[in-house]
Nucleic acid binder design. Structure first.
Length: 812
RNA sequence: GCCCGGGUGGCGGAAUCGGCAGACGCACCGGACUUAAAAUCCGGUUUUCCGCAAGGAGAGUGCGGGUUCAAGUCCCGCCCCGGGCACCA
């Protein structure tokens, strides 16, 4: 049969149309098969899919198809992270409602999705900007409020002038806004809503142990650092002469006899009482200077308050300073400075001539001598010059001194976390309204559950200036108090959009439920997510919030799992010809453009071929051409060889061996490390061999090879492999076939090739049956013609033989 | 500064457990087919030296040491690149 040319657009269009309304990607509700939940992070509907998305989805899709072929009941959903600022900014720029803009973008992106043939169960599609979805954000918020996990407080908050809203700590990168890397965040005092993620800090940290092995170590480390657990002691110094306490937090209470001053943060509440007007002005200047500090270090500065405080252990009186490097937001906002044993304190005290007093000596050394110390000694050691504690190792002193503080009532052992509560109020329109009402009589009153959802008004003018645009919508703002019926005002802030993405993967399990966020029974079946796939940039934002939500939901009795995802895979970035893709550089490789030029199969396969999925990949158009050529080679070969006239079959053994080796390799990779680049390379090797041996393959062998070839390519290039399947006379949807099995006997080479080295250099190769013992290999190697010249006239010192691998002859 | 990754041909990358470095692809060169080109198919391509050639010898995985019969892979010390954290008491 003559070969057919590879017309990718015709093939892809044909199957695209046939699959349009097909239902075979649907997850089954009541299945006897084992379940597999594979999930890619949901995209923001910016309007276009780019090559980075395609990479993410190609990895997930390959896995989903493989799992289907392995007989799993696969859940593979997709949705839209549809709330957020870009829609609002677009609305201001184009005078179009955010909703309209968003829906249009979703439609466009979904079209591209379908063009690529990703295997999503679109019946479960979730769009977070729909009231059917965000009402459950509100519902969760109310549940958290009931449990005291949602609360309101005034705090200094990160304000991005470009976003015109506050940001959570997680959304501040190097002092700048996560979306505007050139825009420094300002500190503003505002009253806003917080979620008490700190209540779960310990669990978030402890449960990382469950994720070991399934999540990248890098992500876990970042989370550990972000949570920042620190074990230490809180102790009260007392202000002289009135005795009011200054509480400090330290991890090194064993060094407290070396404390030579107490330093307060410039915004410490006590400052109001102890500073004169000049001091207050200086403190304020420090706070302001820090607000627009450069990322990086600023010079340590401070001044003496004129007051003294008493060390609760030694009874010593030390000066009280204000220092710009002491953070109000961490610990107690006050520290004891022990310059001899802390680098920062050392730097500060040297600068201002405050005494340095060593009290810890190295375990196998002597106490440092002052004056003359060049740097702080920060390690554990033996406590010296510290009254009754002298002679104790640091670890013991820490424990016993904490216990004393507790007993005497001037302090306690304490654990401090770096993570702070999650500020979720946003002074913007396009987000979930916070379901709260402010009543002049009753105070803050939650919207009753029966009144949910609090729907975002549609007709609204958005200017982007100042307060939430919702404030200008009287019919939204003006309500009656659910408690007393008096006139009241609705909360006009909306929720951080990270709330939306904190639980969307639960909604996929029961996406159309109008009575509850989901049916817990369905969650019990599908969870945990077996494989989550996304970018590493979410390592501490989305991924820590999601873990928090899951734990809260578990405590609400809604889910049984403590963690959302058993395994996480973070794929590498896609860059274009050596440079990072960005809109401003105009080098963004769009998905439609790709599909246009080479077809979806080629685009998907190239992005998997170019590098292992966890690594950065460099998109080069010439490289994509290589894959296009390869798919053409496969297609033409298949079409011209089926049905096939009888041929000798003398190469059957060779070809089938390669085939089974390839099946083995790819199967193992899917189960372990996902190096699809080498999987694809191995199929290329197989095809190269097929070309070389084409005339000598029997009809039966050819059929087996072609069928399995189509199956092997199905996860990576679903269109063309389906077309080949049909050409072969195959029935039904390709990825509903079983994944090909390999025969280990067939996959094995007949004989082992054994490398013969002399002094570690390869001199010859011999073949021997597998399992030939070294006793037989050695003489054969020594007798080899190519080896002899290197051995003759020399003394054979020793011979190392590794069966099935090599013989190394050491001569002198 | 601290903690992770990483450094292999002209390029992307392979070598999964210490055992043949450079699979596979790109680019390039040559050949076949063609009036010609494209497409396609076949072959070559780390490098130095010896040789007309077939072939042979040596070097080589960022740099310097080490362990080992054997090191891209393990150990020690550096250099460079990428990422994360960075006054967290």
């Amino acid at each position: 049969m003559p070969e057919k040319p590879y017309d990718h657009s015709q093939i892809e269009l044909k199957w695209h149309e046939r699959w349009q309304d097909a239902t075979f990607y649907k997850a089954e509700e009541n299945s006897s098969k084992p379940k597999f939940y594979v999930l890619e992070m949901l995209p923001y509907p910016s309007g276009t899919l780019h090559i980075g998305h395609i990479r993410n989805y190609s990895i997930g899709d390959a896995l989903a198809r493989y799992k289907w072929m392995r007989g799993f009941n696969v859940l593979h959903p997709m949705g839209w992270d549809a709330f957020g600022l870009p829609a609002e900014n677009a609305a201001i720029a184009n005078k179009r409602p955010p909703r309209e803009w968003t829906l249009q973008n979703i439609a466009a992106m979904k079209k591209t999705h379908r063009r690529f043939g990703f295997s999503y169960d679109w019946d479960r599609e979730v769009s977070t900007c729909e009231p059917e979805y965000y009402r459950w954000n509100q519902w969760f918020f109310l549940k958290m409020y009931e449990r005291g996990l949602a609360y309101r407080k005034e705090a200094l908050l990160n304000w991005c002038p470009k976003c015109a809203t506050v940001l959570a700590n997680e959304q501040v990168v190097d002092g700048c806004c996560w979306r505007h890397e050139d825009t420094k965040v300002e500190q503003r005092a505002l009253v806003q809503w917080f979620l008490k993620i700190t209540d779960y800090a310990e669990q978030l940290l402890d449960d990382i142990a469950q994720l070991e092995g399934g999540w990248p170590e890098r992500v876990l480390t970042m989370q550990r650092n972000w949570i920042g657990r620190s074990e230490g002691t809180e102790a009260d110094f007392t202000l002289d002469p009135d005795g009011s306490p200054i509480r400090v937090f330290t991890t090194r209470v064993d060094t407290i006899y070396g404390a030579t001053c107490v330093i307060l943060a410039p915004e410490h509440p006590l400052n109001a009482a102890i500073l004169d007007d000049e001091g207050k002005a200086r403190a304020k200047a420090m706070v302001d200077a820090r607000a627009n500090r450069d990322p990086g270090d600023i010079e340590k500065e401070g001044f003496f308050t004129g007051r003294y405080a008493v060390n609760p252990y030694s009874g010593e009186k030390v000066p009280v300073w204000i220092g710009n490097f002491v953070l109000m937001g961490y610990g107690t906002g006050a520290i004891m400075a022990v310059p001899a044993h802390d680098e920062r304190d050392f730097e500060f005290c040297r600068k201002y001539g405050i005494p340095v007093r060593p009290v810890i000596r190295p375990v196998d050394g002597v106490l440092a001598v002052e004056p003359g110390m060049k740097e702080a000694f920060c390690e554990y050691g033996i406590v010296e010059n510290s009254g009754e504690w002298s002679g104790l190792p640091s670890e013991d002193a820490r424990r016993r001194m904490s216990a004393l503080a507790e007993r005497k009532g001037f302090g306690k052992a304490a654990i401090t976390y770096r993570i702070k509560d999650w500020g979720i109020s946003r002074q913007r329109y396009w987000g979930t309204p916070i379901p709260m009402i402010h009543c002049p009589a009753c105070g803050v009153v939650p919207v009753p559950e029966r009144d949910l959802p609090v729907v975002l008004p549609e007709k609204i003018e958005i200017t982007g200036a100042g307060r939430s645009p919702l404030e200008n919508v009287p019919e939204f703002v003006n309500v009656t108090c659910p408690a007393c019926g008096a006139a009241a005002r609705r909360e006009t802030d909306t929720m951080d959009t990270f709330i939306d993405s904190s639980w969307y993967f639960y909604r996929y399990c029961d996406a159309r439920n109008s009575q509850a966020p989901f049916d817990p029974a369905k969650i019990a079946y599908w969870f945990e997510i077996d494989q989550y796939i996304g970018g590493v940039e979410h390592a501490i934002l989305h991924l820590i919030y999601s873990r928090f939500f899951t734990k809260v939901m578990r405590d609400l009795g809604l889910v049984q799992n403590s963690e959302p995802a058993r395994r996480l895979f973070t794929q590498g970035m896609v860059i274009a010809e050596g440079v990072k893709m960005s809109k401003s550089k105009g080098n963004v490789v769009g998905a439609d453009m790709l599909a246009e030029k080479y077809g979806a199969d080629t685009a998907r396969m190239f992005v998997l071929f170019a590098a292992p999925p966890e690594k950065e990949v460099d998109w080069r158009w010439e490289g994509a051409e290589g894959i296009y050529r390869f798919l053409g080679r496969v297609y033409r070969f298949a079409t011209r060889n089926v049905p096939q006239e009888e041929r000798s079959g003398e190469s059957d053994r060779k070809v089938l061996r390669k085939l089974h080796q390839t099946v083995k390799k790819i199967t193992e990779d899917f189960e372990t490390r996902w190096h699809f680049n080498t999987c694809i390379a191995s199929v290329m090797e197989l095809v190269n061999l097929l070309y070389a041996e084409e005339a000598n393959i029997s009809a039966t062998a050819m059929r087996e090879v072609l069928e399995k070839l189509a199956l092997l390519l199905a996860p990576f290039a679903p269109y063309v492999s389906q077309e080949i399947w049909e050409e072969l006379g195959g029935e039904g949807v390709l990825f509903h076939q079983s994944w090909p099995a390999f025969d280990p006997e067939l996959a094995r080479d007949d004989e082992a090739e054994i490398v013969v080295q002399v002094n570690g250099k390869v001199r010859s190769r011999i073949t021997a049956p597998f399992g030939t013992p070294k006793e037989e290999l050695e003489p054969r190697a020594l007798a080899d013609d190519k080896v002899k010249p290197f051995v003759e006239g020399k003394q054979v010192v020793k011979v190392i033989a590794v069966p099935d691998k090599l013989v190394n002859i050491v001569v002198k």
